[in-house]
Simulated assay, not measured.
Amino acid sequence: MSGSTQITQIDPDTAAAQWLLRQEQGLCPAETQHFQEWLASHPAHQQAWQEMQNFNRLISEMPPSCSQHFAKQRKQLAAKARRERYKQLISVYFRPRLLTGCALSLLACSYLWLSLPSYQQQVQTARGQILEQYLPDGSHLELDTDSQVEIALYRDKREVRLIKGQAMFHVSKGSPFHVITDQAQVSVLGTQFSVRNTQKQIQVAVQSGKVAVQPKPAALPGLILRAGEAVSLENNTLSPVQAIAPAAVGSWRQGRLSFDNTTLANAIAEFERYTPTGLRITDPEIGKLRISGSFEIKKLQQFTQALPQVLPVRINKGEISAP
């Protein structure tokens, strides 16, 4: 009795599995005719064949880490089938108790498929460099000087880890979008905002839309920021919400640094992130003086010349001291 005739005499599910193996090996014209006759002989055959194709398609769409296990078993089975042992091996492979294990494996692989990112990227900028990065989901981010992010897009969420520096985010609508730092998670659904992670302090400012700021650990209270609002987080403590001009969010993208009652020490440190300033504060009390204004990043000399005019200081060969 030929192998094709044997296939027609077993249950539809097992027969469908065997026909699939035979097709992958290649059918001769006579076998092709036997297959068509088997398929047309009963509706149960057509249903079993369709289910077997769906099952095979599901395996082929899985990540390699999942599908390789099934592919290996199928290759082993096909090799044994070529040695005239179709009926025995298929009945063992598809016996009901093993089908349960197979279903559990599929569930596990489906979970793994969801947990693996569909897109990953690490982006880092050098001192003085500003970089724009576009993402496959239509979002994009602008990365400030001396900054680093790790991007991972999953099928049910989007995550960007801001390792250091700051970035401006333009988020397209879609699955939840999270910006994660060592102290907080910022979550949005569609907005434009900036997140800064420098000097052990997190700053979030919203240009449009709204974001949720959740300190770590999650048990700590969070808050919602709307357009024109900003907040800082230091030592897991949120500052009061501050009102800001939406147009001022991420002013560094236009090559400017904006200071609002900022200490002189912090203002100079901000310039240092972009370029060596050569400035040194000789007295810590001078560093506590406050300054406000907007300055061009590439025109450090203008900033230096303005200091003695707005603060009680003098500058001599880069040293800032009392007059």
Rank of each mutant, 00 (worst) to 15 (best):
Trp38Met: 06
Gln302Ala: 14
His45Phe: 01
Ile320Cys: 02
Ser91Trp: 00
Gly222Lys: 11
Gly128Val: 03
Gln309Ser: 08
Gln76Leu: 10
Asp11Gly: 01
Met168Ala: 09
Gly165Ala: 08
Tyr93Asp: 00
Gln302Phe: 03
Lys200Gly: 05
Asn236Trp: 05
Leu264Ala: 02
Arg155Glu: 05
Val123Trp: 01
Phe169Ala: 04
Leu107Ala: 15
Glu285Ala: 11
Val313Met: 07
Gly222Pro: 09
Ala71Pro: 00
Arg196Ser: 14
Ile7Leu: 15
Ala15Leu: 08
Ala126Leu: 11
Phe55Ile: 00
Lys157Tyr: 08
Gly3Ala: 10
Asp146Tyr: 10
Gly26Pro: 02
Gln25Phe: 03
Thr282Glu: 12
Thr237Arg: 15
Ser321Ala: 09
Thr304Arg: 14
Gln122Thr: 10
Ser4Gln: 10
Glu37Phe: 05
Asn197Pro: 04
Asp283Gln: 03
Ala103Met: 07
Tyr154Ile: 03
Ala247His: 08
Phe55Lys: 09
Gln203Arg: 14
Ala306Lys: 06
Pro323Leu: 13
Thr198Asp: 12
Glu150Ala: 14
Gln166Glu: 15
Ala184Leu: 01
Leu143Tyr: 06
Asn54Tyr: 05
Gln203Met: 13
Ala71Leu: 07
Gly26Asn: 02
Ser139Thr: 04
His69Cys: 00
Leu279Val: 02
Gln33Asn: 03
Pro240Asn: 14
Trp38Ala: 03
Gln25Arg: 12
Asn261Ser: 04
Arg290Trp: 01
Ser258Lys: 13
Gln148Asn: 10
Leu189Trp: 06
Gln192Val: 09
Ile315Ser: 03
Arg22His: 07
Ala245Glu: 14
Val241Met: 10
Ser4Ala: 15
Gln305Asn: 10
Gln305His: 08
Ser187Asp: 02
Phe271Met: 05
Asp260Ala: 12
Leu225Tyr: 09
Ser65Tyr: 07
Ser258Gln: 14
Ser194Ile: 00
Ile297Met: 04
Ser208Lys: 12
Val92Arg: 13
Ala219Arg: 12
Leu27Thr: 02
Lys317Trp: 00
Gln76Trp: 04
Val195Tyr: 11
Glu51Ala: 10
Arg82Gly: 15
Val211Arg: 06
Leu189Cys: 03
Gln88Ala: 13
Glu61Phe: 11
Ser41Met: 04
Thr14Trp: 02
Thr198Pro: 00
His34Pro: 01
Val211Met: 07
Pro217Val: 02
Asn316Leu: 06
Ala265Gln: 14
Ser239Pro: 11
Gln120Leu: 02
Lys299Trp: 01
Ile180Cys: 11
Asn197Cys: 05
Gln129Asn: 02
Ala243Lys: 15
Glu24Ser: 11
Lys173Asn: 12
Glu272Leu: 07
Gln47Lys: 12
Ala184Met: 03
Leu189Val: 08
Ser251Thr: 08
Ser110Lys: 09
Trp49Asn: 06
Ile180Pro: 07
Ala265Pro: 00
Pro64Asn: 12
Phe177Trp: 08
Asp182Gly: 05
Thr277Gln: 07
Ala205Gln: 12
Ser65Trp: 03
Pro117His: 13
Tyr119Asn: 02
His34Ile: 00
